[in-house]
Design a protein around this nucleic acid. Structure first.
Lengths: 343, 343
DNA sequence: GTGAGTAACTAAAGCGCTATAGTCAACGCT
DNA sequence: AGCGTTGACTATAGCGCTTTAGTTACTCAC
């Protein structure tokens, strides 16, 4: 086997330095119990021998696995723009690697599979903590995570406050930002192509839109649910644009659907932005690549990931932590897809 | 600590059944040394107590970590559509989870960081094997992986044959398929917006294009290198289309660049497909979402990932394995972006 | 100059599991 | 009857590390 390449153990270092393995352990972990002189000598030898801790051995002693889990529940056929999570991952890694930890990302088919995976991970001690994304109304994962005693943070605000530590941006305020802008351009009929209604953020955005519409006396504020796929995004757009009093502006819950919607407008001969304004809730290359480029909400996703990691590390260190970190509300980046409506 | 939630160990089962821990281990691992009757009893109790192996404990005994690594070296700013790797990941997982293994995916900035990570993983016994992607000419990772004694498979053919087990598709043939089709449509000036020239697949495609062009007596066959970003894809397209004898067809190494190229054509008032045909080497939502939808090479990425996982598992089981699995050549999916050139 | 206190260690147990070397009874064979 | 076998176990060591409970040698106070 390849394991014959016997890597150095703590005992090897001990022998070489002439102390006991315990002393080496103390030295390497910055614990008291060895003189500064011996510590220095041990560290030197360890570096020289290129020693690295054996994670499994540490984990066995009850220590941490050095891995946090991030599960994405997606229908494999509707793999949308994973850009967002790629960035989140990147941001998390940057923080975690400084704590010699890593992210274990896994894709599963649905929430049931996600929950199975959590149980599995917990029973095998594979992860030290979890990041829960795509929060749902009455999310079943929260109870499971609590039952398993796994530290976790949610990306997005859970339904009830104080359920779990969370990192979130204000969806309602974000929607308000968009409506503010569209209303200022004199749009009166604004529609919303939303994600699946089970998601907290979708529900919050739809509610915010309704509130804004009634507050400002606008004409429409309907949210059309979809499964986030480009196909349903297109279909919803087609339906909205086929109406007699069709909206002059559509807000999309994802960049992918916004791009698909743009395609539909093109196909129906409706000019963007002259006859229809389009706003996307997500930013990515996609919004920049289509023509006209899409006005969208943009946020520093990398920083968001880093924040999530930081919060998770705290939750791991202090199981009773229940902090709720509010991040900056995404800001509106205006591009070519929005304008004052014609006529 | 949360670990107080004492999960059952093999010793607990032993006590309950009234045998020694060793016997339980035999029973659970399907090893001889226990009667069928006792084995059945042990398995029953294990299920009842919801026992799961503690991975760290197993790994400590020299067993496998149950994780394979996949590192993507990317400049965080030019994170393209990672759809391809998302699908690969999915395909791998489906195979690996049947062997109670998982993929550890990590994003790093460059190849140097990637190599560091491999050394780190190896020294910590974190992974059982690696998947090497985006193969380069004279790839430095191959020597490192060999030195570390880590089983690995390459996704894409390495420079020298028999360096490592690999799973690959024939890039030259794929390019030939495209040129065949374009030539049949009477395109004479075909250009190629390529990736960075260090990549094996880019080099192979460029070479195949040159070969085809000279063989068929076409007029151009230039490959313009880029960094895979939409910006450079757009710039390359702009340069090509600004020439007096501009190409009538452009082949792009990625869907992202193809979409960006389409945008440039639009911006320059060059009609697609009447005045310019566009072909992408990659398929994804992106190619379907733009207008016109892009003609592209398509392959079953999920199956590809599964194949990679299978090959890797073999390589882990048999370190001397050097199989080279050729997968089907991507097939051409014709959409609206290609046509007979005008005039 | 004796006892308490402390710094700097060592010894040893233990984390959960696997693996190897016994042990012991039942069996078959000459 | 005595021998070697076999099957079904048990006992034990060990994987690499952490951690607790010692054990020294020293220092300091009175």
């Amino acid at each position: 086997m390849r394991d014959v390449g016997n890597r150095p153990t703590i005992a090897d270092i001990a022998k070489r330095v002439g102390v006991s393995p315990g002393a080496v352990s103390f030295a390497l972990n910055g614990r008291p119990g060895v003189s500064e002189q011996t510590r220095a000598r041990i560290l030197e030898v360890a570096r020289e021998m290129n020693w690295r801790p054996h994670r499994a051995a540490r984990a066995l002693g009850g220590a941490q696995a050095g891995v946090v889990g991030l599960v994405l529940a997606r229908d494999p056929r509707t793999l949308g723009s994973e850009q967002f999570y790629t960035q989140i991952l990147y941001g998390m890694q940057d923080v975690l690697s400084a704590h010699s930890s890593a992210v274990q990302m896994q894709l599963v088919r649905d929430t049931a599979a996600e929950i199975d995976l959590y149980r599995h991970w917990a029973s095998e001690h594979r992860v030290d903590g979890l990041v829960l994304v795509d929060l749902q109304l009455d999310d079943p994962r929260i109870a499971v995570v609590r039952e398993l005693g796994l530290p976790a943070v949610t990306l997005g605000l859970p339904g009830e406050p104080d359920q779990l530590p969370s990192v979130w941006a204000d969806d309602a305020e974000a929607m308000t930002t968009i409506v503010d802008y569209l209303a200022a351009l004199d749009h009166r009929r604004i529609a919303h192509v939303a994600g699946p209604p089970v998601y907290q953020h979708t529900a919050r955005r739809a509610a915010a839109l309704r509130a804004q519409v009634s507050e400002r006396g606008l004409h429409a504020g309907e949210s059309v649910p979809t499964d986030f796929s480009d196909a349903q995004g297109a279909a919803a757009t087609r339906a909205l644009l086929s109406r007699a009093d069709r909206p002059t502006a559509i807000v999309y819950d994802s960049d992918l659907m916004a791009a698909a919607g743009l395609g539909v407008a093109l196909e129906m001969g409706i000019e963007v932005p002259r006859q229809l304004s389009i706003v996307s809730f997500d930013d990515s290359v996609l919004t920049r690549i289509v023509h006209p480029a899409l006005t969208c909400l943009s946020r520093d996703t990398h920083a968001l990931g880093a924040q999530v990691a930081t919060t998770l590390l705290e939750a791991i260190a202090d199981a009773s932590s229940r902090v709720s970190v509010r991040t900056e509300t995404p800001r509106l980046v205006v591009r070519g897809s929005t304008a004052r409506p014609a006529g």
